[in-house]
Design a protein around this nucleic acid. Structure first.
Lengths: 229, 229
DNA sequence: TCTTATTGTCACAAATTTGTCGAAAAAATG
DNA sequence: CATTTTTTCGACAAATTTGTGACAATAAGA
C-alpha cells in the first residue's frame, strides 16, 4: 500500500494543522512548509505525488514556487493544486498559465479539497489511488513492481512493465503509437513509432499464457488497447 | 484518436498564445489566425470542429466571419463560440442571432473557456467529447473505438468506422457523395465519387445482422442517410 | 571485466484495407 | 416496354498497416 505523499505549502498555521490532520486520517502522508524556498528543498529531497500550494505565502511567491517546480525535471510532472485567497480572476489565469492543475478558492471545506486532490490524483496517477490495479485476470502491484496473471507471476521487462501499467490505468481505451510514446517513453522522445509495435509484441509474449486470449487489441490505423480478459 | 480541431480567431497575440498553450495541453489541436479573411481560408482548407471567434478583430468583423462560415456549406454546421469584450448586450444578441452557439465575455479564465468548449462539443458532437453515441440499435464508443449492434460487437474497417461515426453524429440527414468525401476522407481528396458507394456497401455489410433492417437509406440522385433502426 | 538483459531499428512476411472497374440490378423516364 | 440513369455487387491489384525474427548498441549486474 502506498500512501500518496502530499506537500502542503501554507503559512496559515491553523489551516495547515487542520488540513494535515484531515488528510492524515484519510491515509495521506503530509509534509508541511510555511515557506516557499523550504518547500522547494523538500520537494527536491523527496518528490511528492501532489503539491497543495497557497498562492499568497511570505517570501517566494506561490507563482514562483510553481514555476520552479515545473522547471526541475524531477518535479515537472507533479500535479499542483493552488489555494487562492480571493476570487481574483487574474491570479487564476496566471496560476493555470504557470502550470497548476486545479485551484480552490478560500474559504473551502477540507472535504472539498479532499475531493479535488482525489480527482487530480486519479486523473494523473491512477495507480496511486489503489494499491494494485486489476484488469481482467491480470494484477499489477505498482509498489512491489510485480505482475501476475491467474496467480502465476509474469516475468516482464522495464519498458513492457510501464507500457502494461499505462494500459491498465486506462483499460479499453485505444491509444495511438504517438500517445504511447508520450506516455511511456516521455514527451519529446525521438523514437520511431514502429518501435511501439515491437514492444507491444514483447508485452504480448510476456503476458501470454496457454489457453488464454491475448488481451491486447490491435485497432488498425488507430493504435492498441487493453481489454479485460 | 481524434483530437478536436479548434480554429482560434484572435488578434490579441498574448491571449492567443496563452489559449493555444492551454488547449494544446488538454489535447486539442489548435490553429490560430489574427485575421478574419485568413481564418475563413483556413476553415475552408481544413474544416475545424469548433471556432473560437473574437468579436472585435481587425479587418473583417467577427460578425461577418460568422456569417460567411454559416454560408459556406462545408462550415455551416461548425459550432462557434464568440469572445466578446465587455458586457455588450447588443453584441451578444447579434452574435447569437447570427448563429454563434455560445459566448464568453472577457476577461475569462482558460478554464472557463475550456469548460464552454467541452460543453458545446458534447452537445453538438458527442463523439468528439469521448461520449458513446447511440443511433437506433447501434452503439459507437469513440474512446474504445468499438461498435456494437444489439450487444454484438461488429468488425469494421477504418474507413467504414469513420463513415459510420460521421453518420451517427448527424442521424437522418442526407449527405451527398461529395459531402461524405469531404467529411470522411478530408477536404481536397482526389477520389472518385463512386468510391463512396463501395464503402457504403461495405459499411452495410459490416453492420448487417440477420433479421435486422438496413439502417442506411439511399436517396436516389442525392446521397445517403442513416436512419435510427 | 565479463556476462546477461534490455533497447531501438531494420527488413521482410503476412494480413488487411483501399480505390476502381465492369456487369448486373433497380429505379426513373417517356 | 424500351431506354436512360443511378445504384449494387463481386473481383482485383495496389497500397497500407502489422507481426516477427534478427542484430548491434547500451545498460545493468555479478
Amino acid at each position: 500500500m502506498s500512501a500518496p505523499k502530499l506537500l502542503l505549502v501554507e503559512d496559515d498555521t491553523a489551516l495547515a494543522e487542520l488540513l494535515e490532520y484531515r488528510f492524515a486520517s484519510e491515509g495521506y502522508e503530509v509534509r508541511t512548509s510555511a515557506d516557499g524556498d523550504e518547500a522547494l528543498v523538500m520537494a527536491a529531497e523527496d518528490t511528492p505525488d501532489l503539491v497543495l500550494l497557497d498562492w499568497m505565502i511570505e517570501g517566494t511567491s506561490g507563482i514562483e514556487v510553481c514555476r520552479r517546480l515545473r522547471r526541475d525535471k524531477a518535479t515537472a510532472h507533479v500535479p499542483i493544486i493552488m489555494l487562492t485567497a480571493r476570487e481574483a480572476e487574474d491570479d487564476r489565469v496566471r496560476g493555470l498559465e504557470t502550470g497548476a492543475d486545479d485551484y480552490v478558492t478560500k474559504p473551502f471545506s477540507p472535504r472539498e479539497l479532499l475531493a479535488r486532490v482525489s480527482a487530480v490524483l486519479r486523473r494523473v496517477r491512477p495507480a496511486l489511488a489503489g494499491e494494485t490495479i486489476e484488469t481482467g485476470d491480470i494484477k499489477l502491484d505498482p509498489v512491489a513492481h510485480r505482475v501476475e496473471r491467474r496467480g502465476r507471476a509474469l516475468q516482464i521487462g522495464p519498458t513492457e512493465y510501464r507500457l502494461l501499467k499505462f494500459f491498465m490505468e486506462h483499460p479499453r481505451r485505444v491509444f495511438s503509437r504517438s500517445q504511447l510514446l508520450d506516455a511511456v517513453w516521455g514527451t519529446g522522445s525521438e523514437i520511431e513509432e514502429r518501435t511501439v509495435d515491437v514492444h507491444i509484441r514483447r508485452l504480448r509474449k510476456a503476458i501470454a499464457l496457454d489457453n488464454a486470449r491475448d488481451p491486447i487489441r490491435t485497432v488498425r490505423s488507430a493504435g492498441y488497447a487493453l481489454e479485460p480478459v
